[in-house]
Lab assay of single mutants.
Amino acid sequence: MTSCHIAEEHIQKVAIFGGTHGNELTGVFLVKHWLENGAEIQRTGLEVKPFITNPRAVKKCTRYIDCDLNRIFDLENLGKKMSEDLPYEVRRAQEINHLFGPKDSEDSYDIIFDLHNTTSNMGCTLILEDSRNNFLIQMFHYIKTSLAPLPCYVYLIEHPSLKYATTRSIAKYPVGIEVGPQPQGVLRADILDQMRKMIKHALDFIHHFNEGKEFPPCAIEVYKIIEKVDYPRDENGEIAAIIHPNLQDQDWKPLHPGDPMFLTLDGKTIPLGGDCTVYPVFVNEAAYYEKKEAFAKTTKLTLNAKSIRCCLH
């Protein structure tokens, strides 16, 4: 018999989150649709729960009410004593943790798909938090293969000092899905179709896995975050240069030392320094102006996964 890495157990509980950011409308629209008619997301033997994560922000069509829901799922915020004085999103995070967690427990949901849009030209993107997770690498390989020839990129946010504390991190297997470009507060049919297909293929993978299909060893190309880059700023902290036209919409493309990065209003080009080629992502993302992030630098690498098969009882 072929030796293989056996994944822990079959997958039982899956959640699909929309509206973690209330103005990213593809996930909101799909989740609302699936709450009314969820036939397309159901798979035999699998509990799939669509869920609106930040209903107040969705109602106002804004990213958040008090603070970013997708950055506060750490033990400090989840452990705060519940009171009306807490920011709305912290209270909501505790409610979500109660419903789908608790985080880092045996009772937490197996998989959470968190649906997002970006204003950046990132196409279909899967966000991975753990480079050693054979199950998710296999799932992402399946999704990428199923979507081809449509490109699907994998963004690895594993980093020693950049801690995200994402909404989906309460699950055993957290999956971020990011599709763009799409303006905030807008629905685009092409973007919706791409996100819908990503979810379909992900659920198909889980179904095949649960039925005992063995997935042979595989490898995927990923883009691992190195650092986030702020806009150049003046002495008052105001933005002093904008994304250069040569960099705009060039997510995932190589940016070499000396290539144009920013452009000042008086026409001066600010190039990339250093001696390493990087791959920019979230270029000129609207939501990241407040976070002082013009783009993120990534490096390209390959992740390998062992063969996996479900432990059938």
Rank of each mutant, 00 (worst) to 15 (best):
F205E: 05
K103L: 11
T145E: 14
E227Q: 07
T119G: 05
M139V: 01
C276I: 14
E24P: 04
D230V: 09
S169M: 07
N37W: 05
R56P: 11
E238M: 08
I170M: 12
T53C: 12
I220D: 05
G38D: 14
P174H: 15
S146P: 05
K253M: 10
N70A: 10
T62Q: 14
A148F: 13
I157L: 13
P87N: 10
I191F: 06
E8C: 13
L136Y: 03
T62H: 12
H33F: 06
K292Y: 07
R168M: 09
Q12E: 14
Y231S: 05
N246Q: 12
L128A: 02
D110N: 04
I111N: 06
I177V: 09
E238L: 07
L187N: 08
P280C: 02
A286W: 07
T277L: 07
S161E: 15
D110Q: 08
H256E: 11
P232L: 01
I170W: 08
G258E: 11
T298H: 06
H159P: 14
V28S: 15
P217S: 09
V222A: 14
D110A: 00
T20Q: 04
L86E: 12
I16D: 03
F73A: 11
L35E: 11
L265S: 09
E9G: 12
A93F: 12
E89V: 01
Y289G: 15
P174G: 12
G79V: 13
I191G: 03
L150A: 11
K49M: 11
V90S: 09
I225Q: 15
N77C: 12
T118W: 00
R71S: 14
T53D: 02
R168Q: 10
A202Y: 06
G123Y: 01
E40H: 05
G22I: 08
P280N: 05
R63N: 09
C276K: 15
D130P: 05
N210E: 00
L192M: 13
A202S: 08
I143H: 05
K144T: 10
K224S: 07
R168A: 11
F17H: 06
V179G: 00
Y64H: 10
G267A: 06
F215H: 00
I226K: 08
G237W: 00
L46P: 04
P257V: 07
I11Y: 00
E89C: 01
E211P: 05
Y88Q: 07
I6C: 10
L301I: 14
N77G: 12
E238S: 09
T302N: 07
F215M: 04
K13N: 10
E89W: 02
L69Y: 06
E235W: 05
M195P: 04
P217I: 01
L312A: 15
R63E: 07
L128P: 03
V179K: 05
Y164S: 15
I191T: 00
V48F: 05
I220F: 00
E227D: 10
R91C: 14
C276Y: 10
A202N: 03
K59C: 09
E47H: 12
A305T: 00
K306C: 12
T145V: 12
G176E: 06
E221C: 02
Q42W: 09
L128V: 00
H5I: 11
A294L: 05
P50H: 03
T277M: 08
S146C: 15
V154Q: 03
N70M: 08
L150Y: 09
K213Q: 13
H159L: 08
T26Y: 02
H116G: 11
D85M: 13
K59H: 11
Y231K: 00
G176M: 14
H256Y: 09
V283F: 04
I239W: 01
G27P: 09
T167G: 11
Y289E: 15
T125V: 11
G176T: 14
Y153H: 15
D275P: 08
R91Q: 13
C311F: 10
T118A: 09
S83M: 13
R132S: 15
H5Q: 14
G185K: 04
V90G: 09
E36G: 09
I6S: 15
L312I: 14
V154C: 08
G123E: 01
C4G: 15
F205Y: 01
L150D: 11
L192V: 13
K306Q: 13
R43E: 02
F29M: 14
A287S: 14
I308A: 01
L301E: 09
R43T: 02
E214T: 10
E178W: 15
R71K: 14
T20V: 04
L35M: 14
C218R: 03
D104R: 13
V175F: 00
I11S: 00
R71I: 09
A241K: 00
N210R: 09
L247P: 03
E95H: 12
H313M: 01
I11D: 04
L265P: 11
N54M: 00
I112L: 08
S120I: 02
T302W: 11
L187Y: 00
I112Q: 01
C310Q: 10
G237H: 06
S120K: 05
H98Q: 14
K144Y: 00
M122C: 15
T119Q: 00
N77L: 12
A189S: 12
K213D: 08
D66N: 10
E290K: 11
F73H: 11
M195D: 03
S120R: 04
S108Q: 14
N54T: 00
K213S: 08
I206V: 11
C67P: 06
P102N: 09
A294Y: 02
L75E: 14
P174Y: 15
L312R: 14
F140L: 07
C124G: 05
G176W: 10
L265M: 14
A240P: 03
N23Y: 00
E293T: 14
D275S: 10
I41Q: 03
L247S: 06
E9F: 07
L128R: 02
F282T: 02
G258A: 08
M82D: 14
F73P: 11
G45K: 07
I127F: 11
L115K: 02
K253W: 01
K59F: 09
L187I: 13
K172V: 00
K297N: 07
P181E: 02
Q194N: 08
R168K: 12
N304L: 09
L30Q: 02
F113Y: 03
L255M: 10
D68F: 00
S307N: 07
G273I: 09
I52M: 11
V186L: 10
A241E: 06
T167A: 14
T118G: 05
T298L: 00
D230L: 11
